[in-house]
Amino acid sequence: MIEFFARKTLQALPAEMAHDLAIKALGGPLSAFTRAKQIQHPVELMGIRFPNPVGLAAGFDKNGDALHGLSKQGFGFLEIGTITPKPQAGNDKPRLFRLAADEAIINRMGFNNKGIDHLVQRVKHSGYQGVLGINIGKNKTTPNERAVDDYVHCFAKAHTLCDYITVNISSPNTPDLRELQNDQAFVDLLSGIKAKQLACAEIDQKYTPVVVKISPDQNHEQLQFMVQQIKDIGFDGIICTNTTIDRPNTLHSDAELIQQAGGLSGKPLLEKSNQTLKWVRQCAGKNFPIFAVGGIIDKEDARQKFELGADLIQVYTGFVLKGNHLIKQINQQLTSENKTRP
């Protein structure tokens, strides 16, 4: 009940102010009032045991500042970030917009974060014992031809502190970032990161799986190329998908909101994200690890993801709108069906 009223109060505030207050609350003692039981429905993937298959997507807690409270929401795993080597302010405000009539959010945050060194310290001192992913990116001022330097820098700093690393090359809010998904730039970037992963594994005696987060705005041919390269170079999984720059003609919110630049998440993303998931599963084969995210607002949305071949799912906008009740609903449905995949 307290969690419900707190969420409704935050939803009455400007979007980014509400988000910042939620992070502060979850990072402190107030988080005790929103705790929820973690339902056990374990999934083994990439050599990791996930207590249940419902995780928090990157972008909610960029800096690892709220691990204390997020660990009590019932998630099977958390993903923090996107983090970059140097702190950066992100894009100009306002940059976060609610589309309440569509159960959606538009954001153009632009990788605003406190830098990898801050995140490392937060994780070290958090006491968090659950499954953790860290999402890494490049600084806005780093040219694409030097992007690999930023990714391997973050990987080296973070990989011993987490269970897996996510390579974010699909955010629409950093200029030219998505160009790293194309052709030789993609191959060169992934090859450099893979080399660093293997080198760190030898030095630190810890192999940290790496997954690649992709855009829902790629066509089938582009996806086939990307999936093949991800597999051939030896990456460990794929996250489908980031936000979309498309604006479906089914949106009901005010035109001024719909026309805001940035990535669209929430319910209107579901169909496009699901199509990408379907294609990626076909290209990747039956057993390649896939995390699904995008448009999950209720347990039926989650069911669709699993039916299309997801091994794990992540929520963000759904968590903002529905709170930890959504996590409970999805896991209860899975438990009643006694399966994680069809």
Results as ranks from 00 to 15, higher is better:
I2L: 15
E3G: 10
T9V: 15
T9G: 13
Q11F: 11
Q11R: 10
Q11M: 13
A22C: 15
I23L: 14
A25S: 15
A25M: 15
G28T: 12
Q38K: 10
I39E: 03
V43L: 01
V43Q: 02
R49L: 14
V54E: 08
G59T: 00
D61A: 06
N63S: 13
A66T: 08
H68P: 07
G69L: 06
G74R: 01
G76M: 00
F77Y: 15
F77N: 11
F77I: 10
L78R: 09
E79M: 14
I83C: 03
T84E: 13
P87D: 05
P94C: 01
F97W: 00
F97R: 02
F97C: 02
R98H: 08
N112G: 13
G115H: 00
R122A: 08
S126M: 04
V131Q: 01
L132V: 02
T142R: 04
T142Q: 03
N144Y: 13
V148E: 05
F155P: 02
A156N: 15
K157I: 07
H159L: 09
C162N: 03
I169S: 00
L177I: 10
L177Q: 08
N182L: 12
A185H: 14
D188K: 12
K194Q: 13
K196N: 08
T208Q: 04
P209T: 05
V210L: 09
P216F: 03
H220P: 10
Q224N: 14
K231I: 14
I233V: 03
F235H: 11
F235W: 08
D236K: 02
R247A: 04
P248W: 00
L257C: 06
Q259E: 06
A261V: 14
E271F: 06
N274R: 07
Q275C: 09
V280D: 11
Q282P: 01
A284V: 05
N287L: 09
A292H: 07
G294E: 00
I296R: 11
D301N: 13
A310Y: 01
D311T: 01
G318L: 08
N324D: 13
I327N: 06
Q329S: 14
S336C: 14
E337L: 14
R341H: 11
